[in-house]
Amino acid sequence: MGRSVLENETILSQASTHDYIALLKFRVMRLAILTAAVAMVIAPGTINPVVAISSLICIGMGAGAAGALNMWWDSDIDSVMVRTSARPIPSGKITEDQALSFGLFLSFFSVIFLGLFANYLSALLLAGTIAFYILIYTMFLKRRTPQNIVIGGASGALPPVIGWVVTTNSIGFESILMFFLIFFWTPPHFWSLCLMTKGDYSKSRIPMLTETHGEEETKRQVLFYSLLLLVPSFMIAFTNVGGPLYLISIIILNAIFLFFAMGLSGFAQLSKLFKGKRDRQLFLFSIFYLFAHFLMLMAEFLLKFFLPFYENFAEVLVWL
């Protein structure tokens, strides 16, 4: 083997398995899998566990594919931002072409096999999610409007709808509420992250709200969406998938979320209670907030499943 060939091969193949996994944006993938799994389980109807797990793998791969394609397109801005500079493409471990091929392969694979394992409606929704995230959010909105993450958040909100469709082959009212729960949750979550990483987006020239309208306006918008978030959060409690346990939990969760959002927005009395960085507190709590919502829905389902008298109790609440 000639020296030049070996050198060329070495340069092209520096990626480890870990780097490919990093391309999948594991944290986002985790959220997609959890929300889809909960929706799949609590949806009316039955699903074979093998089909459910296989479908979840496809949904996770689809979410990962969207992450990989997002990193491929945004590699130029990832390299100038501190938060994203260690990602596989800007750090030189994976080439742009490798990321593109990997993302496209996973996209087609996940959509085709979700269609075969579950149903074609769920596959269509998964394809729509990936296309929306890449074509609408990453390629169009992200570099053009400060409302980028508000509209783009729709793609992150679709996994529970896909999970619901896998079980029922139809889009239920409850799954639409779950969609709006994540949709209204995304702006406070992401803007609190932007407030934490001040200046990072100005370097990359991304028109984030913190850069175009300033921190005060961003904080006001955070509070606005935190209030909007109350609507789907409470509406779910009065549907067939909600119940007393979920209702009590979300009263506490929403109270804490609003407390953080109002503290961030500069409500004088509340602000005095905060010792640490308010944006960081809201960001970290927002992650727990969403996970807790879906875990409570799962707990509600399990209670109804194992304790028949609890279901009657929950039905009274729905009737009220």
């Binding site: 193949s13 520096q14 471990k93």
Partner: peptide
């Protein structure tokens, strides 16, 4: 992060990728 440019490092990474594939 220091990238291992040696042939051993390259082989180890390729083996690891192939194993997981």
């Amino acid at each position: 992060m220091v990238v291992d440019q040696s042939k051993d490092g390259f082989d180890a990474k390729r083996k690891n990728r192939n194993f997981w594939l």
